[in-house]
Design a protein around this nucleic acid. Structure first.
Length: 282
DNA sequence: CCCGCAGCCTGCGGGC
DNA sequence: TGCCCGCAGGCTGCGG
């Protein structure tokens, strides 16, 4: 899905459109995504004002001036589409639409329907079952080498799959884990507990930098993800290994020993890496 | 507790 | 051209 940088990009655009606005109309066109959308979603949100918006991992929270907050997750293929409301056109798979007093149409489009939309009391946002167990924010002040090292300690699973575990770190997905391991020079199949101390230092440094760079580029558009105006993000052009099987590694150009970028499957997902730069012994 | 895997959905591109 | 297969950025729930 949209990973942290894509969700953050959507959050910022959504905030510009929605913060301080009253929802003059809410249309639920399909009442079930990954889970059912709560009964009365429209009536509980209509005529409410969106007070503030924030992100937690890959989730977006919209706080209303009632005691409710909207929880939004884009799943694999979800996107937000913002336009002037006058046109009143819907696209395929546009399941929910929020219309603001300012005259904007904010649609949630999700072909695969792995996304989620829920409503909960604002006072216990972080107790929501989907949020309660998620881990460290990689762009937060607590994301340090020490904390990362503590998370990896004792974990026997491959570093690739451990970094994807949202209960440990919130927001990384397949693309950014591959890219971070490449930049840190860590082999994806090394057990998390075996990653050398200096490699953990590099990893802790590189993760926030990649995420910030990706946010600055508006995220990575591969197939479904788009910004709220329908335009693509720009970070896919900066991917060094993701989706680049058989290409030369950008880090070892012309080196005869570099066999190019490899694709392997770990826990059912593709991993891309350079066997030369990401050597198990480093 | 930890791990791996199937399943949830639709759409797309490649191979035949 | 059409069909079938594999693949896709996530997450949960099950089994071992």
């Amino acid at each position: 899905m949209p990973e942290l940088p894509e969700v953050e990009t959507v959050l910022r655009e959504l905030r510009a459109a929605l913060e301080g606005q009253t929802l003059r109309r809410v249309i639920v066109r399909r009442d079930s995504l990954r889970w059912p959308i709560p009964k009365g979603f429209a009536s509980r949100t209509e005529r409410r004002k969106a007070v503030s918006l924030r992100r937690r991992g890959k989730y977006i929270l919209i706080r209303l001036d009632s005691d409710d907050s909207i929880l939004l997750h884009l799943g694999m293929s979800g996107r937000i589409r913002i336009m002037r409301a006058e046109a009143m056109d819907f696209v395929r798979h546009e399941h929910v639409v929020l219309e603001t007093d300012g005259g904007l149409h904010i649609g949630f489009v999700d072909p695969r329907r792995f996304g989620a939309l829920d409503l909960m009391p604002t006072t216990d946002e972080d107790m929501h079952p989907l949020l309660a167990k998620i881990g460290l924010e990689p762009l937060g002040p607590d994301f340090t080498t020490t904390r990362l090292a503590a998370l990896l300690r004792g974990r026997k699973g491959p570093i690739k799959t451990v970094l994807l575990d949202q209960r440990l770190i919130a927001g990384l997905g397949n693309i950014y884990v591959c890219e971070a391991l490449f930049r840190a020079g860590i082999h994806p199949e090394i057990r998390a507990c075996d990653v050398a101390a200096d490699a953990v230092v590099r990893l802790a440094a590189v993760i926030p930098v990649i995420l910030e760079d990706a946010i600055a580029a508006g995220g990575s558009s591969l197939r479904d993800y788009a910004r709220t105006d329908g335009k693509s993000g720009g970070f896919q052009d900066m991917h060094q290994v993701y989706g680049r099987e058989h290409e030369a590694c950008p880090d070892c150009p012309g080196q005869p020993l570099c066999a190019g970028i490899r694709r392997i499957v770990q826990a059912g997902r593709s991993t891309f890496y350079c066997p030369q730069r990401q050597h198990p012994a480093s």
